[in-house]
Structures are given as C-alpha cells and as structure tokens.
C-alpha cells in the first residue's frame, strides 16, 4: 500500500507537486537514518525555494505531516506513514541532500529531481559483500579494543558476517523489537560456541565486540540531536527506542548465556 503511494505520479496543482517531491525526499531521508530536524528543514527549504508562501512540517520517526500554501492561494496538505523500520544508509542521505541542494538552488527542475529520487531509492555505493566485510572489520576491531586476542578478533569477525546477513532478512522474528533480541541471542550463542570449539579464547571479549554491532547508537545520537534542536517528541521517541533496544539486547545475550552457559 505504502509503495503505491510513494510511486504515484504527482498530478494536480503546483502545491501538490512541490509538497509531494519534498515529502519524497523527507521520507527517504527518514528511512535511511537521518535526524528529524534535517527532514523538517529539507521539506521547509525545498517548498520555500520553489515558491511557497507558507510551509509547516511535523515529523516523528514514523510519520511526516506537512502543509504548504502558495502565493496564488492554492493549498496542499499531505502525510506519509513510514511503516518500514530505519535502515542506515549514509550514502543515500548524502545523495538526497545533494538533490535537495540542487533543487533549492534551481540547478534541476522538479521533474528531474523526482527522477533522481527514484534512482537514489535503490542506490548503494558498493556491493553487499563489502558491507559484510565492513561488519567483520568493525567487530574484529572492537574485540581487539576490548582486550581480545587476534583469534578472538577472527571469531568476532565471523559472527559479524552472520549477523550482518541475518539483519538483512525480512522474517517475523526480525520485526520491530524482536530484531535486536534475535540478533543478540544469535551473537551471544555463537560467541560461546566458537570459544567452546577453540576458534576464540575469551568469550567476554568476543561477546563485547559483537554487542557493538547491535547496540542502538544511531537511535541514541539522533535522539540527542533532536532533543537539542527542540524536537522533544521525536527526541523522546528515539531515546525510548534506544532504551528498549538496549533492554532487548541485554535479554538476548542473557538468554544465550543461560542456554549455552554450560559450554563456557
């Protein structure tokens, strides 16, 4: 249902087209992990640059509501429900930011901007394999950082690849708050099993390395940024999300250690 709304061609008055384009950019910024203040700012800047007399945008992590009034008196009010969870993609944020700047400066038209948004939706800077390797380097680095040996770093890297592949799956057990629980349980269990098999030595170092991959750093930072920028509702929602995710991670690791504790 949501896809239909996003892909629907913008027809009608200028106000509708302008707001639809601004909301498209805002929605994709939100989905790819941008802060709320950036989304609001982008929508307001685009509409103002394209000739709106008055713009209002209200954004929370799962909803964008905005209205625009043009100089000729035409008016448009639209809403987007961001149902899918946030999947961090810094490259897309960068590209959407560039489109927004080009649109505001008049370098591209609204039609060109809409075509570019469509292409950015599926744009990645490199293949998924590079992301998995990145996850392995990330966790291996932290295993060393927290006092692990090179062998621990290797097993941490292996677990990171599994978690990275698992987190891309759409399944009932990876929806909402079930996702951090499932990923933490798998990471905790694999840490214990790999150390039991002799691939790692220190379960604690491996587990601490892998916990960094699932920890809600993004929600926490965007929550703080939103709070500082005065978006109290969005900031509070993001911080609550970070807190609940941390609790689910703790539960996932606790469950793994209770189940596989005998191997430690």
């Amino acid at each position: 249902m949501e896809q239909t709304v996003i892909n629907a061609p913008c027809t009608g008055a200028d106000a509708d087209i302008i707001l639809c384009t601004a909301l498209d950019i805002g929605q994709h910024l939100l989905r790819n992990g941008s802060e709320i203040s950036r989304v609001e700012n982008t929508i307001e800047r685009i509409c103002t640059a394209l000739g709106a007399a008055h713009v209002e945008a209200f954004v929370i992590p799962s909803l964008i509501a905005a209205s625009v009034r043009m100089n000729d008196g035409s008016y448009s009010e639209q809403m987007r429900h961001v149902k899918k969870g946030i999947s961090m993609n810094l490259y897309r944020i960068e590209q959407l930011n560039t489109i927004s700047r080009q649109l505001c400066s008049g370098a591209i038209t609204v039609t060109e901007a809409r075509q570019k948004i469509e292409s950015v939706k599926r744009l990645d800077p490199y293949r998924p394999l590079v992301s998995h390797v990145g996850a392995a380097i990330f966790v291996a680095g932290f295993t060393l950082f927290f006092g692990g040996t090179w062998l621990d770093a290797f097993s941490g890297g292996l677990i990171a690849v599994v978690i990275s592949i698992l987190s891309g799956f759409e399944a009932p057990f990876t929806k909402g708050m079930m996702k951090p629980f499932t990923l933490s349980f798998v990471a905790g269990s694999l840490s214990v099993i790999l150390c039991f098999l002799g691939i790692g030595r220190d379960v604690d170092a491996v587990a601490i390395g892998t916990i960094m991959q699932v920890i809600p750093g993004l929600s926490f930072w965007t929550g703080v940024t939103d709070m500082v920028n005065g978006n109290l509702i969005s900031g509070a929602l993001r911080l609550l999300q970070a807190l609940l995710t941390a609790v689910m991670i703790a539960l996932g690791y606790a469950m793994a250690f209770l189940v596989f504790g005998g191997l430690m």
């Binding site: 810094l90 992301s131 996850a135 380097i137 990330f138 060393l144 950082f145 960094m212």
Partner: peptide
C-alpha cells in the same frame, strides 16, 4: 596502541557497514 587500532578499525568498518560513500 590497541585502543587506537581498535577504534579506527571499528569506525572504518562501521562506515562500510552503514554504506558511507568512498569520498567520506
């Protein structure tokens, strides 16, 4: 030295994980 190596590897690895552009 371990802290430095770990945090640089961690940051660069995370950048690849969240698909940061090559330029960044």
């Amino acid at each position: 030295v371990y802290i430095m190596i770990g945090s640089i590897l961690g940051a660069m690895g995370y950048a690849l994980l969240v698909k940061a552009s090559v330029k960044s």
